[in-house]
């Protein structure tokens, strides 16, 4: 029980965020309308809104409607992400418990770990071209790192008392691994999923900015090439919104799954 007798926030503090956000958009609009910021440098919120409605149905000038770009980006990101999960998590779990797995997998893993995700882009394009394969590879390469690290750390943080208890009951290494280590690691693993997702999404946008023929990053690049700031801003907003949205979904799944786990007491 906290001793602070909670003071009610004054009214001004409650409306300040709204004032701030509305003010932001008004100032932005005014800056463009008064030509203080030239139209070739930035589009106004109204223009971006108009383009948003237009791009829902109109594939010109960049070749696809907005949903297509978004879905292509999402598919690329999710494919690479899922591949990273199904390779990285088992690898990390095994590395956390079995000496041989760790001894063999650690050196190559430590070699790719410090490579910033975007640095994979040229190699991936060179190997696989600008299509979906290259993107999936890039996403896999960057998302697999947090998956492995968190699964590994999760297993290492399994309660040693539980493990010793299992040993005294005669459990085999494999039984301990599946019955104790993996459930204990789950909360950590979910932490890794969050990190991996944010990383995957950012890296994908970077990859699409550099080489792509569709996707939200491509939309942003085309906006620059065609000198259409409204397209750039629309692309950025869609990137932000989509990233925020999938982050929320993962968060919700995590809460549902680990809530039951904590009640079971295995996590601590």
């Amino acid at each position: 029980m906290n001793s602070e007798t909670k003071l009610k926030d004054p009214l001004s503090l409650k409306i300040a965020p709204w004032v701030s956000v509305i003010g932001f958009f008004v100032v932005w609009q005014l800056l463009i309308d008064t030509e203080i910021v030239p139209r070739i440098l930035l589009a106004s919120p109204v223009e971006v809104g108009k383009l948003l409605i237009d791009k829902l149905t109109n594939p010109d000038p960049d070749g696809a409607v907005l949903m297509t770009h978004t879905i292509i980006s999402l598919i690329e990101a999710l494919l690479g992400y899922i591949l990273a999960l199904i390779t990285g998590i088992p690898l990390g779990l095994l590395m956390g418990w079995f000496v041989v797995a760790e001894g063999l997998a650690r050196p190559p893993f430590e070699m790719i770990r410090p490579i910033p995700p975007v640095a994979w882009i040229p190699l991936a394009i060179f190997w696989f071209g600008i299509g979906i394969t290259g993107k999936v590879f890039i996403i896999w390469a960057c998302a697999v790192v947090p998956c492995v690290i968190n699964a590994y750390t999760g297993v290492r943080m399994a309660n040693p008392t539980l493990i010793q208890m299992a040993r005294t009951y005669g459990a085999s290494d494999w039984q301990i691994f599946t019955k104790i280590c993996i459930p204990s690691a789950l909360p950590m693993v979910f932490g890794g999923l969050q990190i991996a997702l944010a990383l995957a999404w950012t890296t994908l946008v970077a990859a699409e900015l550099i080489a792509a023929d569709a996707g939200l990053g491509y939309l942003i690049t085309m906006g620059r090439r065609l000198l259409r700031p409204d397209m750039i801003v629309l692309g950025m907003i869609m990137v932000g919104l989509t990233g925020w949205f999938i982050g929320n979904i993962i968060d919700r799944i995590e809460r549902r799954l680990t809530a039951g786990l904590e009640r079971g007491g295995a996590a601590t």
């Binding site: 001004s12 503090l13 300040a16 965020p17 004032v19 701030s20 956000v21 932001f24 070739i40 440098l41 930035l42 975007v118 999404w201 950012t202 946008v205 970077a206 900015l209 990053g217 942003i220 690049t221 906006g223 620059r224 000198l227 700031p229 750039i232 801003v233 692309g235 950025m236 907003i237 990137v239 932000g240 919104l241 990233g243 925020w244 982050g247």
Partner: peptide, 30 residues
């Protein structure tokens, strides 16, 4: 300062989900 926070945080949260690299096109225009 909670007033400064109430004013700045919403705008910051608006921009936060955009990956920094997505600014590149605007940056080049500017």
């Amino acid at each position: 300062n909670r007033y400064l926070n109430a004013l700045v945080k919403p705008i910051f949260d608006l921009f936060k989900p955009m990956p920094p690299i997505s600014w590149i096109s605007l940056a080049i225009l500017w």
